[in-house]
Each structure stands twice: as structure tokens, then as C-alpha cells.
């Protein structure tokens, strides 16, 4: 396998795993370094990758474990869930309004119990399959579906509560 073949094979994984890695490491710089180091490790193990039966799960698990190792090594505090909200392609005047709405969503998601939030974000942000989430978390697949169902429903209910409240506040004002 040439370096170019490897790059073509791993590019989609790097793109897919970046948000999850950033959620664990909390900074762009650390995530960038970790992703680079992870790719070098995978390149060094490229002979094993050929025989890997579930490469998607293997790479995802390697990325997650590596990020937790980095977090431990660098003594990065396991702070609350944080996310830098960026809205590519949204006009500046719409940014404030849109950012406010996204902040409410963020607030709701950050208040979910950790395992609900973890599974929800793996599915919705990282686009991971149920099987990949199973490999990453160790939860059984039916349980993952239950967690997804509950977390999605809770997010919808909480957001609608906020919107109804905001709507009433604006109406009365």
C-alpha cells in the first residue's frame, strides 16, 4: 500500500472522526495533533488493517481510545460538554438569530445524561452506524436504539418548551 492509497482510504475516516475527537479533546490544536498521530499509528499498522474485518469500527475505536489517552497524558480536564458553533454559508445578520437558536439546542443537549448525549452525538454529528456505536461504547444495539429514541424525544420536548416560552414572551411584550 502506498502513502497515497492510504491517504485516499483514511481521508473519509479523518473527516468523520474529527468532531468526536474534538469533543473529547476540547481544542482544535490538540485534535489536529491527535488526528495526525493517529494516522501515523494506523500507517505503521497498515499490514494489520488489510486483514481487519470491520475497519470502520476498528478506526473509530482506535481514535476514541487514543483521544482518551491524550486527554489523560496532557491532563486535559474532563470539562463539561462544549462546542464551538460555526455556521458556514449563513449571512452575518442571520448569524445572531441562528446562533441564539443553536445555543438553546446546545443547552438542551448539554443537560442530557452523559450516555444519552454520547450516543446521540455519535449518531447525529458523527454519522456512526449502530454497530460502530456498539463497538465504541460497549452498549448492546437494542439499548442504543432506546437511548437514541429517548434522547431525540427529550431534545424535541425541551426545545419546544423553550420555543413556546419564548413565543409567549415575545407575544406579551
Amino acid at each position: 500500500m502506498t502513502a497515497e492509497d492510504f491517504k485516499q482510504q483514511m481521508m473519509p475516516y479523518a473527516r468523520k472522526l474529527y468532531p468526536m475527537m474534538k469533543r473529547i479533546l476540547c481544542s482544535d490544536e490538540d485534535t489536529r495533533d491527535a488526528l495526525q498521530e493517529l494516522m501515523i499509528r494506523l500507517w505503521n499498522k497498515r499490514k494489520d488493517l488489510k486483514d481487519c474485518q470491520n475497519l470502520d469500527a476498528y478506526v473509530a475505536v482506535a481514535a476514541r481510545n487514543f483521544c482518551y489517552d491524550v486527554r489523560k497524558r496532557k491532563k486535559i480536564p474532563s470539562s463539561d460538554y462544549q462546542l464551538e458553533i460555526t455556521l458556514p454559508g449563513v449571512k452575518l445578520e442571520s448569524q445572531l438569530d441562528a446562533s441564539e437558536k443553536l445555543s438553546w439546542v446546545h443547552q438542551v443537549i448539554s443537560q442530557l445524561p452523559e450516555k444519552y448525549r454520547e450516543v446521540l452525538l455519535m449518531r447525529e454529528m458523527d454519522g456512526l452506524s449502530i454497530e460502530e456505536i456498539h463497538h465504541l461504547t460497549g452498549y448492546e444495539m437494542p439499548y442504543i436504539r432506546v437511548l437514541l429514541s429517548r434522547s431525540r424525544t427529550r431534545v424535541r420536548e425541551e426545545i419546544e418548551k423553550i420555543y413556546n416560552y419564548e413565543g409567549r414572551t415575545i407575544d406579551t411584550a
Partner: peptide, 26 residues
């Protein structure tokens, strides 16, 4: 739900230069 999906998509934004830099490093 529109805002919820917008929120999920906002986190997917990956700085353009990152992938190039990662594989150049390789």
C-alpha cells in the same frame, strides 16, 4: 427540528487545511 439539525451540522464543519496538514505530516 430544523434548528436541531442545523446544530448537528454546525459541529461537522472541519477546517479545510486540517486534512492536508494531517497527511502532509504523514
Amino acid at each position: 427540528l430544523h434548528d436541531v439539525f442545523a446544530y448537528y451540522d454546525s459541529a461537522k464543519h472541519l477546517p479545510e487545511d486540517i486534512l492536508e496538514e494531517v497527511f502532509t505530516g504523514l
